[in-house]
Design a protein around this nucleic acid. Structure first.
Lengths: 247, 247
DNA sequence: ATGTCTAACTTGTCCTATAAGCTGATGACA
DNA sequence: TGTCATCAGCTTATAGGACAAGTTAGACAT
């Protein structure tokens, strides 16, 4: 892989090991690489025309995603897909769209379990500064309803702010790990015309429950918000399936 | 399922980069390294007497834990501890005990939110094979009540089996990520004399709810199990604090 | 004082060696 | 024939030196 061949997007230039890892992962997903037949450092080095250092870092990346297992002296082995790290943004990016669709649903299930409780926890421990920031984000979202992309950024910040207010590093990290899946999910749900206005409305309700430091109300408001998202997600899924059938 | 790698008590020889990364992390935690003053590849190479390749992989490890940020041309910077990846076993291993104690409590909070629902989900989708495996693990646990370490292994397997039965890769991965924290937690709770017998009893109850494919019962049984653990955890915490005060 | 530009420093990649660990085949011995 | 030790040939782990490419801060000119 020589240097001119990088993605024409020119948005994000990634390092060689990441590019090669993406190639290999897609090849594994497509079944081109059989179970035990993972390429060695030298194989990668030869095939992609990269140095052994790069091949090495490629394998480290794949290992960190639990896609392969590597140990000194032993041949690299591919691990079963059920054990891969689906919390990693990199892996998600490399997965085919149908899998990502499934993962979005599973992610939503997780959010339904965690976020209402996080909101309730936040209601008892939230500080004035956090409330100020939430207020600020609410205002910005209201002003950005015509710009879905920018809206999504703030949306994500809003949810993470609440998560942080709950004061639990483990739960915080979990929600953070799912950040890319999350934006992907919201990108779908927020596509609907009136979705943004409705979301702002939901967010306001959550905010007010936090101001009142009312855990039950915060939990209920967050639940309602997620239910609205769920409906949009389901609709979108239907559309996708119909389109696939037509094809 | 041999999901993890090393559960053996054999002393694990770690690679140089991991050792160096452990050193550096501890130094950062102790405040020896100031915010922006992270060592460069050459610094590490010189100070620890390792090659640049090793220094490089060290930084990659720290970056993958979100401890530092590294980019070409720029100096390495230390990220705020609030953003570190507390789901990683490596990081946990390197943290001082008081922090791990706090994390255990936060982990337990997460388990309380997720595991009862996972049990309920599993109750509707569990297969006969999974039930067989659970049955087998129950028997093995009953036979291992005198050997806490071996018991813990099976205990963990039991919980993960249920998680897998819920058929959600995201939730599965979350629970898997917390595996070491989990065993650490159970290592404390299962220390109590009668704890193992009580745990087996709880497990049996959960199992029977799954056999009956009764979500509500499964949720309730899991909740009870976690509440028992919680009591033990609280007791242990009290003891630790008392010991610390005496010191 | 301000803006430009180079020099120094940093990470990214390549090359070549050597050490260390595993696997399977070979062959000696019972 | 069967069992076990040994070794050759694979693999990854580490070392050292070189250059490319990106960033930053300070020198320099205006």
């Amino acid at each position: 892989m020589q240097r001119g061949q990088e993605s024409s997007d020119a948005v994000k230039v990634r390092t060689l090991p990441v590019q090669v890892a993406a190639h290999l992962t897609r090849r594994i997903v497509s079944g081109e690489i059989e179970d035990g037949r993972a390429p060695s450092e030298l194989d990668i080095s030869r095939e992609f025309g990269v140095s052994r250092v790069v091949a090495r870092e490629t394998l480290k990346i794949l290992a960190s995603l639990d896609i392969v297992e590597v140990a000194q002296g032993r041949r690299v082995v591919v691990r079963p897909p059920a054990e891969w790290d689906y919390l990693s943004p990199l892996l998600i990016e490399w997965m085919p769209t149908e899998i990502v669709g499934e993962l979005l649903q599973e992610l939503h299930q997780m959010r339904v379990l965690l976020e209402p409780e996080l909101a309730a926890m936040a209601a008892t421990s939230v500080t004035g500064e956090t409330l100020d920031r939430l207020r600020d984000e609410l205002d910005r979202m209201a002003a950005l309803e015509s710009d879905p992309n920018a809206y999504l950024e703030v949306d994500h910040e809003f949810h993470m702010e609440i998560c942080r207010a709950a004061d639990n590093r483990i739960l915080d990290r979990i929600m953070y790990s799912a950040r890319w899946l999350g934006t992907a999910s919201r990108r779908i749900t927020n596509e609907a015309p009136a979705a943004l206005r409705k979301a702002t409305c939901d967010h306001t309700e959550i905010y007010e429950a936090l101001v009142a430091r009312d855990p039950a109300a915060a939990r209920a408001a967050m639940r309602k918000h997620l239910a609205n998202n769920s409906n949009l997600l389901a609709e979108k899924e239907q559309q996708t399936k119909r389109a696939a059938r037509r094809r």
